[in-house]
Each structure stands twice: as structure tokens, then as C-alpha cells.
Computed example of a mutant assay.
Amino acid sequence: MMRARRQRLAAAAAATVTACALVLGTAHAADRVAVFESASAARIAASQQGKPFVLVVWSLDCVYCKRNFDALGKLRVKHPGLRVVTLATDSAEAMPQVQQLLERVRLTRNAWVFGHEPQERLRYAVDPDWMGEMPRTYFYRADGDRRGVSGVISEADWARHLRWAGIAG
């Protein structure tokens, strides 16, 4: 009887540890960089559940992209609910460096990096009119309408684009 009780306790403890590991693993997985393939563009838009958001396309070797990250950091202080998705155009092999930079700028949620399809196909999946210039920022409205902007965005332009997307008043 004592042995059966110990076995039940051990089984319950193991189940609890497994459940905790799954929960922690899921939370941690949300902060991992996902691999972007051409079908991912529609998944990203759908994942935002009809809410306005900003998609920031960047690269590790893009100096100007880092300026947009600085501006985003300031904006997230003013607008804590600002939904940001990042997409690095670097190869999936650069994922550790991409993850490290995103951790430094606190943008690890909803982060993506280009996968193994040809760059042209992946860029086309993001926007058929985009020629690859960076940084590239897309402002999505709740209705799915979007506006793409190339280059570093000034503080006044951030405010204007966020208002257009319905993110800031």
C-alpha cells in the first residue's frame, strides 16, 4: 500500500514537471526567431488577429536599421501596446546573431529571419513592389490595409504613420 502511494506521488510529480516544462517551453518558443518562407507572410498578418501592427524588415549589416530600432524602443515606452513584428533578411544560418541583436533591443517576440528560398521570392512574398531597400517598415491597419516605407523614419513620420494605422491618436 505504501509502495503504491509512493508510485502515485512520483507519477503526479513527473506529470507536474512535464506540464511546467511544456508551459515554459511554449513561452520560451514565443521568443525564438522563426524561419520565414514565402507562405509565412499571410501567417504573420493573420497572427495579429485584426489588430494594427508594425512589420520592421531589417538586416544585421544595415546601419540604418539600428536607428529604426532605437526609435521603436522610444515608441514602445509611449505606446506599450504597440505590436511589432520583425523580419531579418539575413539567412537562417545567422539566427544566433539575429536573436542576440533582437534581445538587446527587446524585440524577440514575433521575430522572423529569411529561410532557404531565394531572396527574391521571399521579398516578393512580403511585398511584390519592394526591391530590397532597407530599412523597410510596414504599417498595418486592423482591416489589413498596409503602407510600406523605405529608409529611416523621422519621429514626426513615425507619429503620422502610427496615426494612419490606428495605433496612436
Rank of each mutant, 00 (worst) to 15 (best):
F53T: 00
K78I: 03
V77Q: 13
A88T: 03
C62H: 08
G115F: 02
R43V: 06
F53Q: 00
S40G: 00
A45R: 12
S47Y: 01
K51R: 15
Q99R: 13
Y64P: 06
T108E: 10
S40F: 00
N68V: 06
Q100W: 09
R32Q: 11
Y64R: 08
V85I: 07
V63S: 14
T89C: 10
A19P: 04
K74R: 09
L24V: 14
T108N: 12
N68K: 00
R76F: 07
G81P: 06
H28A: 13
T89F: 03
S47D: 11
Q100F: 11
A88C: 10
E103G: 15
E93I: 08
L107W: 00
K74A: 10
L87R: 03
K74F: 05
P52V: 10
R32G: 03
E117P: 09
E117T: 08
V57K: 01
L87Q: 06
Q100D: 14
A34V: 05
D70G: 10
T86L: 02
A34D: 06
S59H: 12
A29R: 09
T89P: 08
K78Q: 13
C62D: 15
Q48H: 12
A111C: 00
V105H: 05
K51M: 10
R106K: 15
A15H: 04
L55E: 01
E37A: 11
R76E: 06
V113A: 03
A34M: 09
A42S: 09
N68L: 05
R43A: 14
Q49V: 14
